[in-house]
Design a protein around this nucleic acid. Sequence first.
RNA 1: GUGGACGUAGCUCAGUUGGUUAGAGCGCCGGGUUGUGGCCCCGGAGGUCGGGGGUUCAAAUCCCCUCGUUCACCCCA
Length: 424
Amino acid sequence: MALKYHAPRGTSDLVFPESEKVERLVEIACEACALYGYRRVSTPVLESTGLFRRSIGEETDIVTKEMYTFEDSGGESLTLRPEGTAPVVRAYLEAGLRSEGLPQKLYYAGPMFRRERPQAGRFRQFSQVGAEAIGSEDPLLDVEMISLSVAIFDDLGLQRYTLLLNTVGCRACRPAYLEDLTTFLGDVSGRLCDRCRERAKKNPLRVFDCKEERCRETLKNAPVILDAVCSGCGRHFEEVISGLERLGVPFSVDKHLVRGLDYYTRTTFEFKFRDIGAQDTVSAGGRYDYLVEELGGPDTPAVGFSMGVERLVMAMDAQGLDPFGRRRLDVFIAGAPGVDRGRLLELLSRVRSEGVSADTDYMDRGLKAQLKQANRLDARLVVLLGPDEMERGEAVFRDLEESRQWEVPLTEVPARALDFLGGR
RNA sequence: GUGGACGUAGCUCAGUUGGUUAGAGCGCCGGGUUGUGGCCCCGGAGGUCGGGGGUUCAAAUCCCCUCGUUCACCCCA
């Protein structure tokens, strides 16, 4: 308890069996991405600080107070990545992927870092699996992102999620809308809470998230972006909607859905789950048609989403899902007193060569304790060897579940073990 | 950054209005079978009661500070 070192606040160790459950879950998500034609991309966890300041937005909470930024000994400002999209776009540009043909469909998985106060579903180091499709403005690609998210939920057996959908316009229509909204907020300023007045300056759209009754009442007459969007954005949104309907993906339009990163344009979406705490968004994404250009590339539209792995796990737990099965050891090799350990070692190696997981005692335990260990490891088969058997050229196979045991010739142990394991 | 709750054994927790060597269940180790697990029985190891200071004859218990965990706000995956 009074240990000298702990995992840093907001980070945690993942130990068995959770470690392997999470690994499997990420694997399932990645397989779905591949099924949808996305290719893996891996970027460093460190990037130049400027990349994030530029892409996420100077005024956002992430950039102003949540980044792990430091200067390395060479004087360069580096930041532990707080999200995955900007690095992927940077990698796309750096590798010249445009020449590989468009759209470039990429997915990634890995840790992200944000220095926030931890709570249920929020950590300083967390993992995301995400996908990006760069180079097309086809609304069906927006639909694909959403249905990829749905596919991952389905593959994991997750149910009862809510999909919220909105559009935040483009540079043709958003500025005018923001101006209208700002004007409106200025007019009703006296009726808003302190927080909303602050938001009105920094990120006007956020006022719609306010839970204060008075603010909600006041904002009922506020202009809504969905109504103010230009014809291009309006048409795009309609096509996303009809695509979702075509696929039978239920959703609801949330006119006030706002994303926290500045680069989003047009479509934005969020998947929410119940019973996982206040941080209930498990997957979110949208279009970012200007980001590639913003980072120095040519005018290139793009869409993407990312999913919080820890929140996914919480949703699985909340729904009582554990599709990973129990992790069992195939064979435990136990040695009776006086046995030649060199022979055990040899046997262990031969069994493992057959692709059968195997372990043995390294604690100099008595036979009884070894059996106990085998039971603890949930071993499917115990191979027992003692001086007597050795002399006869035999080994004892013990089936822990059936409490039966029989002898097999020593030379046939690997093959017979395979038979036993395969025949169950 | 703000607010609430909580820190007793590896884990989950008891611990009466402050009162002797701080407990339980689970887990761990050993025994009950000269070489056989799971159930049962017996025994054992394991604790600076988060840390520091104070009050008191006496503090796990009361007070202050501190560190940590957790939930919520903010914000987000």
